[in-house]
Amino acid sequence: MSSIRFISCVLLVNVWLFSGVSGFAPVDVYAQQVPSWQAGNSTFNGTGYDLPSPPPAPAASSPSPAIGALELPADTPESISPGFSDLQPSWGGEFGLSPASLDTPIVAPEETVVETSSYSDVISTGQPVESAPLEEEVVRWYHRPWIWMTQGWDNHAEFGLDGSSGNADTLALQTGLEMKRKTDAYTLALDFDYRQASASSVTTEDNGRFNLDYDKLLNNSNWSLFGKFGMEFDKFKSFDLRLNLNSGVGYHWIRNDTTNLVTRFGAGASKEIGAPDDSWIPEAVFGIEADHQLNSRQKIKGKLDYFPAWDDFSDFRLVTDVAWETLLSDSDNFSLRLSVTDRYDSTPQGALKNDFYYSALLLYKF
């Protein structure tokens, strides 16, 4: 009987402990913390499943906050899982990742365009530069002559050809090069031309000339100082090569972009190499030069140089050039020139005094 009473007391104590009389939590607390479906209880209501109510939020003084219930974003199509929308209003089409919204759009700043040719030019303008270019343009010393000869110049090459066959076979060829640089301070001009003609395979003409003219303005006035250097060779003259050097002063009556007129006076000397008299002959020089732009396509120009010997003005040379040019294309590269040249020598030393040339030339500007 004592053992039966002991077992009965133990059972009474267990019933009392789990009946909620003491301060221990009843079994329902476990049901509130664990979803009913995990505890083996069905929550299907006919159309979906009832979610358990979330547990109360932990107190602020709690050292370890409780994990809240899972919240699902909105806007999920019903096709993901039938009846799933009953658990939450909807599920986002971005699978829970909503796109971030910007208060103001981000616009890249406009880049400042600096029309410069090199990195050093950009630095000189004061513009901010993030990084230096990969390679800066470098001009070597041997580039300078070519740059100087091609920038600021008015250059053209010329070529002319005519001939005949039959009773008389003739062929005439003329070619040349003209380069001119004109600035507010000076004018530099180079001129070279060559002529050759033949009749019945016999050369009847073979000559050429080169002229270099420099004209420097004095203190932006109409007065200038000039220098001239010339070479001429002619197979049918009494000399092999003629040289002349002259300098002096000039006066520019008109000097602008459309019309130029200048007169010159100076002194110098000439020498005919290979002639019976090959000594240097002192001589004066009188000259006049003019050119005029008739319109956007046509231009005329002329030049006359008179070289008398200082001791006898009846001993002289006279060179005259007159030309008319017209553009052949809108590109300004091709032009046609009709020119007339007369070279007179009062003392030809056994040759004819006068040489007269006329030609039609095609000019290519570069």
Rank of each mutant, 00 (worst) to 15 (best):
Q293T: 12
N295T: 06
L304N: 03
V285G: 02
A290L: 06
D277N: 14
E283T: 05
S279D: 09
L304E: 02
A275V: 15
E272Q: 11
E272T: 11
Q298M: 13
S296G: 13
R297A: 15
P282I: 05
G302C: 04
P282T: 09
D278K: 06
H292W: 11
E289A: 10
I288K: 01
D291R: 05
A290Y: 07
Q298N: 15
G274F: 11
L294G: 02
D278F: 03
Q293N: 10
Q293Y: 07
D305P: 03
P282W: 01
D278R: 04
Q293F: 12
Q293L: 14
D291Y: 05
E283C: 03
Q298P: 00
H292P: 00
L294C: 03
I281R: 12
I300N: 04
Q298I: 08
G274Q: 08
P282D: 09
E283V: 03
E289P: 04
P282Y: 01
S296M: 13
I288H: 00
D305T: 03
K301A: 15
I281G: 05
N295L: 09
W280E: 08
K299M: 10
K299R: 08
A284I: 01
K303D: 09
D277M: 13
W280S: 12
G274C: 06
A290C: 06
P282G: 06
I273K: 04
V285W: 02
L294I: 15
W280C: 02
G302D: 05
V285E: 07
K299S: 13
F286H: 02
P276L: 10
R297I: 14
I281T: 13
R297Q: 12
A284H: 02
G302R: 01
F286W: 05
D278A: 08
I288G: 02
G287M: 05
F286A: 04
E289V: 14
Q293R: 12
G274I: 00
D291A: 11
K301G: 14
K301P: 09
A275D: 05
I300D: 02
F286P: 00
F286Y: 04
P276Q: 12
H292Y: 11
A275F: 13
L304R: 04
R297K: 09
R297E: 14
H292Q: 15
L294W: 12
I288Q: 05
F286V: 08
N295I: 07
L304T: 02
G287A: 12
I281Q: 15
Q298K: 14
L294H: 04
D277Y: 10
S279R: 15
K299N: 13
L294P: 00
K271V: 10
P276T: 03
D291M: 07
P282Q: 06
K303W: 15
E272L: 15
A290P: 00
W280G: 04
S296E: 13
I300Y: 03
K303I: 10
E283S: 06
R297T: 10
K303P: 00
A290G: 08
P282V: 12
A284Q: 08
K299F: 12
D278S: 10
I300F: 13
I288W: 01
W280I: 11
R297P: 00
A275L: 07
V285A: 05
A275C: 04
W280F: 11
D305K: 01
I300M: 08
G302Q: 05
E283K: 01
A290D: 10
K301D: 15
D305F: 02
D305V: 01
S279W: 14
E289M: 14
G302P: 00
